[in-house]
Nucleic acid binder design. Structure first.
Lengths: 225, 225, 225, 225
DNA sequence: TATGAATGAGGCTTCATTCAT
DNA sequence: TATGAATGAAGCCTCATTCAT
């Protein structure tokens, strides 16, 4: 079950008795929604339970506590997506360039433009400082694997001569930064600042072009002041 | 840059609570610290008052409630940042490249590496969704001016032939993104994930080089897949 | 002495829930264990059910609620203790001294040093205040018969001249007190206070000697201040 | 402030505003009452606060949590009494016999016969197993000091030749056991079993006589079988 | 202007008990 | 007879806010 795939509408399925194996999924969907809307701290277990159509206590049949519920949400959503990214990379046989494009456009399409998934990184940025356990598991499930994936792509391109030599750890942040920035702006300011510009329709193509230009093996004649 | 120095009000005080003159200064410093350390929700009025050396009740003599205190902190603090940024830009006479370097290295040195100031954008990203009014004023005071500044630099370079033609609104985000990403990682994850890598010592030079390579007027023969 | 062996009901089953015949045995054993380990309030029906190898709901097929289960445990368990105590007394033909020694060493060996049985009196002390009905039956089944038994021994000794004249009701408590005290300390503090001293290996012999010295018919010349 | 001395009636002092230094005492009195009536776990902070005439939150201005409140109750009551016992012993100049009598009659009068103080040891026996921190502090504040006090008395008597040689650690339990047993019976069974006999009026004198006979230096001719 | 004791609503979590299957 | 998923009341604790002094 992956939350990133079209999810059955959230209206509580009316009937009371449910099957045990359907519960966790329903709870995760409800939890994702509430966490996204309210933030981790402000999200109330009550709301999540209600939205999932169960009582408060039921949540605790499936998740030890609020933190574990959140962790499960992250794992099932972003964790799954990152894992899929790794699968894509593993099965890729073309150029590093095309792999980079594939991975990033995947990220762009399925995460940046998903109103719920795109909220999670912002959420983590907001709460990580106060919930070290959360921060650590998010780092292990999402951040480090995502970075490793991008490092791998860069290294492939460097080995094949498609990319110039770069410090991958740094460069990975040049890749992640703008996309994450856009996600954060979207969720933090788009509502309060209706006219905010998040770039034009060509944002993604423009970004990819930007990266590839920087990565081009031709040394520019002047990079200093 | 210190809050304890009188900072010129950045915008007409909005016709709200007034007498924020003498005592509030210490309160704002204390509040900044605590908000930075804990985040908005987790920051306790108790701690702020104690750190400012006053009693809890006193806070309410100057600020209507926690939200207004938070607003005041953001407003007073970020004002100085933008003001100085504008000054740097206005006084510059050299190439667009050198201006870009100057502005970014200012940001890098004085903000990204300042443990308190660097925390504010993260704080805003975290809380903007819950404080639309604050989000709007932050956008007007910080985000839009900062973007305008960078757009201006890019346009200068494009006019002078130093930079290729780029969609400035997009490209500005390629610039802001990585630096902000680094700030956020620093404040959200560095403590909880001790081993996290934020890049090597050359991060900033490496980033500047990356930008200038992308901006180089020579069009690479292949940017597509 | 094991609960899994059929134990003759000690008192008419009080006209309450009946069919406690086949399955309840395992439940009572499990309940005894959990009550002993955790105390009444902290004992969870979940744990008891799990340890008995049944589901939580099954417990309610045999016992109306937690209180009735607790009553059943106490009733079934302590019954065997007193029954055997009476048998020992009835079959004794020697001196009062030797009977006292026999009864107490039985208590010492089979109860004080049994990790489960020794916990029950502590449990009763802890909970009697909250379960008056249980308190009454425990008094009738255990306390009063045990006291009567000891009073009888003392009276035998006084009649035979082995013991001085004592107020038996008082003296019985001088006998019971130290042994019970030890049981309570064992179960309440031994775990939390690892270094606690419960006396040396000679505790029991030392105690018996203590009693017999006090009971010696020779009146000491000075007992007052 | 000692709770063992006649305490001002518990009715909430009507007036709302109270002095800060009066609060802890009022809270301790209320807490002692509620703990004694309900036991530690069943005692609700709400009840304690209400009985002290304050709101729930106020309790937390003076005590970190429920455990610390309970610990304070123990310290201020039994802890104070035990400390006073040590003072009595330190200032004593007469025989060991008279000191033993003085200390025990003090215990008898001020603790065993105090309806509230006498409940605490039972309470601890009931709860120690589930609250190790509580158990440890009770051991340190009450049990070990009380035992040390009695060991000291026994040793004085042995040195002066008033008492025979005894294993003090064992014998101390012969002293404590019966008195504690009586306290426990009083609180656990007296209400539910109206007719229960806790011994006659001479209980205490009878007990002291019992101890002194056992401690008498004259060796009885027969202590075996 | 300043204090700080007091308030009390609100959230997470536990667990005895129920009931549809 | 047996299950075990679901319930929901209840309690501890926090903390923004108030107010008498």
């Amino acid at each position: 079950m992956t939350l990133s795939q079209p999810v059955p509408p959230l209206s509580p399925p009316a009937g009371r008795a449910r099957r045990k194996d359907a519960r966790p999924g329903e709870l995760l969907v409800a939890a994702l929604d509430v966490f996204v809307e309210r933030g981790y701290t402000a999200a109330r277990l009550d709301d999540i339970a209600q939205r999932a159509g169960v009582s408060k206590g039921t949540v605790y049949l499936y998740f030890k506590d609020k933190e574990e519920l959140f962790e499960a949400v992250v794992r099932e959503t972003l964790g799954t997506l990152v894992a899929r990214g790794h699968a894509v990379a593993a099965g890729h046989t073309g150029t590093a360039r095309s792999l980079l494009r594939e991975i990033l456009s995947y990220w762009w399409r399925d995460i940046v433009n998903d109103p719920r998934l795109s909220a999670l990184p912002k959420l983590m940025i907001a709460e990580a400082g106060n919930f070290p356990r959360l921060a650590l598991s998010y780092y292990q499930i999402v951040i480090e694997p995502a970075r490793a994936l991008l490092r791998d792509v860069l290294e492939r391109g460097m080995r094949s001569g498609e990319f110039r030599a770069v410090a991958t750890t740094n460069f990975v942040q040049f890749i992640i930064g703008p996309l994450l920035y856009r996600q954060c702006m979207q969720h933090s300011f788009a509502l309060a600042v209706p006219g905010i510009s998040l770039g034009d329709d060509q944002f993604f193509e423009s970004f990819l072009d930007h990266l590839l230009r920087s990565l081009a093996p031709v040394a520019p004649e002047a990079a200093g002041t």
